[in-house]
């Protein structure tokens, strides 16, 4: 059964309003502006699995969604480019403290802009790219470290 309705649920993020176009489990079609993606969603009690472009993202339910991603890690993150493209904007500098979900870079890949966001509250320890750089899929773009954070916790509830 596929539902399609122009008044589907929406959510507001920095990059725009995302609206559910259709939901036929596990297929979820979202729209943002003129852009549209088909994703997969499947949840267990503790985790929501979201599939996009062959990768499955496990997001903890009920709490701030980045919490689970960070718990298994040392606090260090290398963010890589999901596909070949170009760096359109660099929104942070080395040493900046960033919040979970904050946009760090804007990439242009396959003629679409997509933001690279901080997976959790952390400090930008190294920038590997500059505006105008051409990047390959899998290139490291930026390194983050959440253990380098000061004691002022960032409030991630705004996004």
């Amino acid at each position: 059964m596929t539902m399609s309705d122009t008044s589907g649920p929406t959510i507001d993020l920095d990059s725009g309003t995302y609206r559910v176009v259709s939901w036929n489990p596990p297929h979820l079609v979202l729209e943002c502006g003129d852009d549209r993606r088909t994703l997969f969603v499947s949840s267990t009690k503790a985790t929501t699995f979201v599939g996009l472009d062959g990768s499955t993202h496990a997001v903890a339910r009920g709490r701030r969604s980045n919490a689970q991603l960070s718990e298994a890690e040392s606090g260090h993150d290398d963010l890589t480019s999901p596909m070949p493209g170009k760096v359109l904007e660099v929104l942070v500098a080395e040493g900046d403290t960033v919040e979970s979900g904050q946009r760090l870079l804007i990439l242009e890949a396959m003629k679409m802009e997509s933001p690279i966001r901080a997976p959790h509250d952390s400090v930008v320890t190294k920038l590997h790219v500059a505006v105008g750089d051409t990047i390959a899929g899998g290139d490291t773009l930026i390194e983050l470290d959440s253990t380098a954070l000061g004691d002022a916790p960032a409030d991630g509830s705004t996004a």
Binding site: I11, P25, S43, V50, L52, L79
Partner: peptide, 28 residues
Amino acid sequence: WVAPARDDWVEAAARLAPRLAGAGSEAT
């Protein structure tokens, strides 16, 4: 290699999931 970072599409889907019927297993 690291898994692709969550972009806004994934973020939006994850946040919308609780409002989608049948998104969860029977244990939800």
